[in-house]
Design a protein around this nucleic acid. Structure first.
Lengths: 143, 143
DNA sequence: ATCATTGCAAACACTTTGCATACGC
DNA sequence: GCGTATGCAAAGTGTTTGCAATGAT
């Protein structure tokens, strides 16, 4: 994400450009994702926005995230069983999940690493489209 | 897994050594995982074994896999949302999932790669215990 | 007035839990 | 006979679907 979204108008334009009807709920959800880069679950997005939009339903969150995903605006993250987390689509990066507090942190792909090095020879016959790397361990706070 | 399990007795001994009561069902499940390294879901294990053990219940599969997991005998794989796959615990390796047919293939960690290179500098303050790499794309058969 | 979006309720799929039954030593 | 494993049924989660109500142009 190179752009900076300073106002809700910026977000509106961003969705508009991508052919996504910028409804109130969609704007709010996208805006919230931008301001809370915590790899939230549907549950946490819902809880957070319910304060602002008391009529909000989880269905709308699901619908919206699926829509965003189809348009490449968010990534679905599956580090752990039974919980899907969402990520605003950005530069390629990896994730670290703390086994103690459950926090998920963005990490860069190691600088030295040419992504091509990550592809084992044995896979040549298969066409790789995505590479995902994630780490698990104890975060600085929980160590 | 260096060992080769040629007979059910080998599997029995293996579980015995690890303090796991080698019940009929557990043996069968472990044996089946050894002979079918296809990263199966609970559903597919269940369906396959039901032919041999008509009284088998899914609960037993769940119980057994959780038990095995606690003892490090199997890994739970979460490449895709909403499906947990199981893997007999082996040397570190990565996975490739075909987006078309859904097949999951084992891949080695690229030979040239020292695992340390995979750790970004930014993560120094966090204690990394596991590294997971997976790929998605089109497999040779579906290309 | 029309068409899309929202949101409730019900349906689904996957997994865990409670508990009575069956099994093995 | 006792302690564990099994397996049914019910409960719990997370997600999707059907559809009527609402909202925007």
């Amino acid at each position: 994400m190179k752009e900076e979204f300073k106002t809700i108008e910026d977000v509106k334009r961003y969705l508009d450009e991508r052919g996504i009807n910028p409804s109130y709920q969609r704007l709010k959800i996208y805006e919230w994702l931008l301001n809370n880069r915590t790899h939230p679950t549907v549950e946490s997005i819902y809880k957070a926005l319910l304060k602002e939009i008391p009529t909000l339903s989880k269905t709308t969150i699901y619908n919206t995230l699926n829509l965003f995903q189809q348009h490449g605006l968010v990534n679905a993250l599956t580090i752990e069983e039974n919980e899907v987390r969402y990520d605003i689509n950005t530069e390629p990066h990896s994730h670290f999940k703390c086994k103690v507090c459950g926090k998920v942190i963005d990490l860069p792909i190691p600088r030295k690493l040419d992504v091509k090095e990550l592809i084992p020879e044995e896979v040549k016959s298969n066409k790789i489209e995505e590479i995902h790397i994630y780490y698990k361990g104890k975060c600085a706070d929980c160590a």
